[in-house]
């Protein structure tokens, strides 16, 4: 069913016609693709580290990749054995949890927020802008923000069940979900 969304944006009347079924369906596709992309990235790093015995190493990212970028001062804070160990732990497990949350639609906005947070660092440190400033890292970030803005976890996702539970009956918990 096509629905007309009417709102005001900085004084302008906005009328947007959305087909509910197609909107919900496409948000689901977006969530599955983005969720699997991040879950795969995390799962392979965790698997290689803990099963295959090939530990994930983010040392190059902190020591060398950030050189000359606007985030060099931020990443220099982590340029120590403890900082690199922390990053080596957080990136694989963070990616895995973000991917799981987005793919399953569980605490979707929380997962998408941290997905965007992670992509923020990848975008500015990888700085793969030779063919344009809108790189694949920024596209990933935009996907996470889109999922968070739309709250896509309710569409065939666990959030539609989680938000009915007692612990979710408050504003704080609801905002972390889809």
């Amino acid at each position: 069913m096509t629905q007309t969304i009417e709102t005001k944006l900085f004084g302008s009347d906005i009328s947007l016609e959305l087909n509910g079924a197609w909107t919900a369906y496409w948000l689901f596709i977006l969530r599955v693709l983005t969720g699997w992309w991040m879950l795969h990235a995390g799962l392979t790093k965790v698997w290689e580290t803990y099963v295959l015995g090939q530990p994930f190493g983010a040392g190059w990212f902190i020591k060398f990749a950030a050189s000359g970028t606007i985030l060099e001062p931020v990443l220099s804070v982590f340029n120590s054995p403890a900082g690199i160990a922390f990053t080596n732990f957080m990136i694989p497990w963070g990616e895995l949890l973000i991917g799981l949350g987005v793919l399953l639609g569980a605490f979707t906005r929380l997962a998408a927020f941290f997905g965007a947070f992670l992509m923020f660092f990848f975008y500015f440190v990888n700085a793969g802008w030779s063919h344009g400033l809108f790189s694949s890292d920024l596209m990933g970030l935009v996907l996470f923000v889109t999922i968070a803005v739309f709250g896509a976890g309710r569409i065939w996702g666990l959030d539609q069940y989680l938000e009915r539970m007692n612990f979710a009956q408050n504003r704080f918990a609801r905002l972390l979900m889809g």
């Binding site: 970028t69 606007i70 985030l71 923020f120 802008w129 400033l133 920024l138």
Partner: peptide
Amino acid sequence: PNARALLIA
């Protein structure tokens, strides 16, 4: 690029 990146950041 870093000037533009700063605006995006």
